[in-house]
């Protein structure tokens, strides 16, 4: 399947959840906000939300400091 992450196209050849994708990207689930097709994916749903062909994801990874 083909998905878009922050505007960049990516091909994935297996079934994957949003959490699986984040782990692949070496991002911690507790430090991200993920929007899938314009809707926020709640933190508790990251591990149960399966990616589908054509999904458009916006992923923000937060770093500390303020």
């Amino acid at each position: 399947m083909k998905i878009k992450i922050n505007g960049t196209e990516k091909t994935i050849n297996r079934s994957l959840t949003v959490q699986g994708l984040l782990e692949e990207m070496e991002l911690q689930c507790k430090r991200v906000a993920v929007e899938r097709n314009r809707d926020i994916v709640p933190q508790e749903a990251l591990s149960t939300t399966a990616l589908a062909d054509g999904d458009e994801l916006e992923i923000v990874h937060f770093v500390g400091g303020g």
């Binding site: 507790k30 430090r31 991200v32 906000a33 929007e35 809707d39 926020i40 709640p42 933190q43 923000v60 990874h61 937060f62 770093v63 500390g64 400091g65 303020g66």
Partner: peptide
């Protein structure tokens, strides 16, 4: 906020609670 976990918590909570309310967040300023 200062902590990355806290930043993510707040943004996720606000975005889920009020899809129409703008949030302005800071990350990467050290």
């Amino acid at each position: 906020f200062d902590g990355a976990d806290q930043k993510a918590m707040l943004v996720n909570c606000c975005r889920a609670t009020w899809p129409d309310k703008p949030v302005v967040s800071g990350s990467g300023l050290a």
